[in-house]
Design a protein around this nucleic acid. Structure first.
Length: 282
DNA sequence: AACAGAGGCAACCGCCGCCAG
DNA sequence: ACTGGCGGCGGTTGCCTCTGT
């Protein structure tokens, strides 16, 4: 168990990948597919273990990767999904087209967790920190129910079961615009192969529909029930407000916020999404 | 300009489950 | 039933870059 046999072989390089290695791997996979990963290094002329090649491809070289900073909607979706799925990054990543589990995990650990804490929310339990206690179902129990494929919809039909987006975004002390500021000054550039990729996700300045930022608009979320097979962009504009609408809604709801009123209002939309996820997965 | 600390990110490590022999 | 190879996943580490002083 543990380290794979291929990793015991000598001359296995470690550390950062060079552009030449990337090029070899991309060339090999585009021409032959990866097939058996353990044989890829040899066939591609790389001194890496198969696992390393697989990771590099999945997390960095795949052509369908989006890269760049996470949008507001993506972050919100991650928070929602984490509340339900816990640290099942691969399952969360499966619902964010073009994003990898590693990317999401890194973002969660370095950025989103911090933002949640700043908002007085425990990132592990998704419950408020401090004295104020929501009468909420224990997310541990939610996750257990999810894992046991039972009672998931029941838990999620409880508006208190998941401490969610609306509460994160519509706190009364927040400024009217989106409260989570995306730092676009960093991490928006990909250094792979000297190619710079950039995505503008900040809603503070220009308003850019996120659907335009998602290159793979073919990606679909297969939502069951009343809405079926929504296009990703349609889904975003339906379930989530567009950035401009998001601002307006945030502003309105900030003004209206009296405890949980706004949260309940927005929670209805979130319920649709989450219950659909459970209908499909569990 | 130089340095230290913080943050972000790529990659590794170790474990698990599946499957073929 | 057992064993080893492999893919996949989550946790963690360490390097690099950025920011503040």
């Amino acid at each position: 168990m543990g380290r794979h046999s291929c990793c015991y072989k000598q001359k296995v390089r470690k550390g950062l990948w060079s552009p030449e290695e990337d090029e070899k791997l991309v060339k090999h996979i585009t021409e032959h597919g990866h097939g058996c990963w353990s044989s890829v290094p040899k066939q591609a002329g790389l001194q890496r273990c198969g696992k390393s090649c697989r990771l590099r491809w999945i997390n960095y070289l795949r052509p369908d990767l989006k890269r760049g900073t996470f949008s507001e909607q993506e972050e919100s979706l991650i928070i929602e999904l984490h509340a339900v799925l816990g640290n099942r990054w691969s399952q969360i990543a499966a619902r964010l087209p073009g994003r990898t589990d590693n990317e999401i995990k890194n973002s969660w650990n370095s950025c989103i967790k911090k933002k949640l804490r700043q908002r007085g929310i425990d990132p592990n339990s998704h419950q408020p920190l401090g004295d104020f206690k929501m009468p909420t179902a224990n997310p541990e129990n939610v996750n257990r129910a999810v894992a046991e494929n039972s009672m998931a919809s029941t838990c999620l039909s409880d508006p208190m079961a998941v401490f969610s987006l609306a509460q994160l975004s519509f706190r009364p002390d927040d400024s009217p615009h989106c409260s989570t500021v995306i730092d676009s000054s960093r991490s928006s550039m990909s250094k792979a192969n000297g190619v710079e990729l950039q995505s503008s996700c900040s809603f503070d300045g220009g308003i850019i529909p996120w659907s335009e930022l998602a290159p793979d608009t073919d990606a679909q979320l297969h939502l069951e029930g009343e809405s079926e097979d929504l296009e990703w962009s349609e889904y975003l504009q339906g379930v989530f407000p567009t950035p401009s609408a998001f601002q307006t809604q945030t502003q309105t709801q900030s003004q209206q916020f009296t405890g949980l009123g706004a949260w309940h209002q927005n929670q209805n939309q979130q319920q649709l999404l989450l219950s659909d996820i459970h209908d499909k997965d569990f």
